[in-house]
Design a protein around this nucleic acid. Sequence first.
DNA 1: TTGAAAGCGGTACCAT
DNA 2: ATGGTACCGCTTTCAA
Lengths: 318, 318
Amino acid sequence: MATIHDIARLSGYSVSTVSRVLNQKNHVSKEAETAIKKAIEELDYVPSEIARDLSRGKTLNIGIVLPHIKHPFFSDILNGAINASFLTEYHLVILPSAYDEKRELGYLEQLRSHAFDGLIFTSHGLPLETLATYQKYGPVVCCENPYEVPISAVYSERSMALQSSLSWLKEQGYKKIGFFFSREEKLSATTRETLNAYRSVFKKEPETTYVKTGVATYAEGYQKAKEWVDDSVELEVIFSNGDDIVAGARQYFLDQGLPVPYLVGQENQLSSQLMSISTNDYQFQEIGKKAFELVLKQGEIEQISVPSTFMLRETKKN
Amino acid sequence: MATIHDIARLSGYSVSTVSRVLNQKNHVSKEAETAIKKAIEELDYVPSEIARDLSRGKTLNIGIVLPHIKHPFFSDILNGAINASFLTEYHLVILPSAYDEKRELGYLEQLRSHAFDGLIFTSHGLPLETLATYQKYGPVVCCENPYEVPISAVYSERSMALQSSLSWLKEQGYKKIGFFFSREEKLSATTRETLNAYRSVFKKEPETTYVKTGVATYAEGYQKAKEWVDDSVELEVIFSNGDDIVAGARQYFLDQGLPVPYLVGQENQLSSQLMSISTNDYQFQEIGKKAFELVLKQGEIEQISVPSTFMLRETKKN
DNA sequence: TTGAAAGCGGTACCAT
DNA sequence: ATGGTACCGCTTTCAA
């Protein structure tokens, strides 16, 4: 592979001058430029990015850590970040974690070793405090409300949509509301937030028979709906943790010829649009976009919350 | 930031010895190792990835070029590639192209300048021949059948699913089959392949009133279905270029209280599962996985075709 | 087992 | 306008 030295030799000029025409800095004579460009052409030369990176101490790579991309939370954030990266000279590097702390630590170490100019954590197995300590090596942005932990963050203000969707249900006179969650309240901030919104709106504890955890897919939604029916639990509403999941539940009722409860999804995915199911939109794309912008700021710690909305839709009988 | 020289100085050993304990190569005395590790600890030192890359002339980065990730073809391939990268020491770098030839050429140039160790093109605006010429700078894999162009490729053997789905329709006695495509036959290999499969199965030319192009979204599916109804075109089947799109068409018939034609989607997405719509599964995830594996092979040019299947589903009346 | 020194391929400062 | 050269931080060969 041709190097800058080869160009210098062939053109009869020095590496400095070659570097100058490469970077269009300072003044170079027409003849020099012509001769050098000719040599570049002749040797099919391109400057090495790696050498450049070393010289200037930057990679122009931003890492984004994702446990997986099966869930819209992650794929939407990723999309938002990709779109934002479009507008810059930076590259996004996908860093799959599967929630493995070893892997996550590896990525943080790579930030330390300058493999990346910054890191976005869409989620994490490691404690938030650990992420925070790595900020001295470069910008680290997380995608949740960090509360008292001093770390840059962009996160959804879920409570807004939760409050308004639950308030709307209350206004309609609905009382028997079933919930789907992926993880238990102790383990999941999202579950906690939802149930707290319920407590605040309805002024009472949710009944345990109305709460199902361990639900994360269409099939599980279908299955859990069946459990409710089998246990003769009467429901007026199913408040789900995802559009696809609530679609599964809906299908169960349809298959049994039973009346479908009022449905509320989450995340405004295609399935809720297709079926005209009300949903909460948490603007994950926007979070990805803002997270990318924030990681480039390299400045002080900053926390940005993104508003969420309840999207009311007519549920068609069919 | 501490460098390998600082460690050498502080530990009292040479850079070479430090490098040896870093890379666990050759033999180093216990005392040296202890002293050096202590120094590393003390100075909070990590070797610079960039310097390593330069020294060994590799980046361990594989670029994957995507026009966007709104379509399952791209997001599925991406997913497959990400999963494959899990199992290696390589990183996947997302390279958004928006089909822009300038951007694509930029990425090829970056391959040339060793910013990546290899490149996957999920699609391209540039001619395939151009991609092929860059193979001398590093492995380039595309995701379509390259026919006579000498380039590594992993692609879906679409004709298998197309043949079997169309044959099945013929066996059922269906004759009036409407088609959705995103681009015209001259411009799109996919459109061509589908219509050729039709010709081969039905032994005749498709009628132009039954073919709609420029359809790529749920809303457009809805709209084009309306056009057929408005023009009093009778249809027994809609053979669509995507699950979401055919779902849009279905919705139009339901909204009008009209009988829904038999539907065939493509790509086995969630929407066809939700609605029990038959679909063709082209195994895009598998393509992404194999493309990643192929790009690492760095060897000779290789072309891999992945089989596709027709997934017959009962379309429920509702 | 250890060290010196020559790369790797550029950038940028300092002279001329 | 141009050239010489130190330096970025590590790997690797060669010698001791």
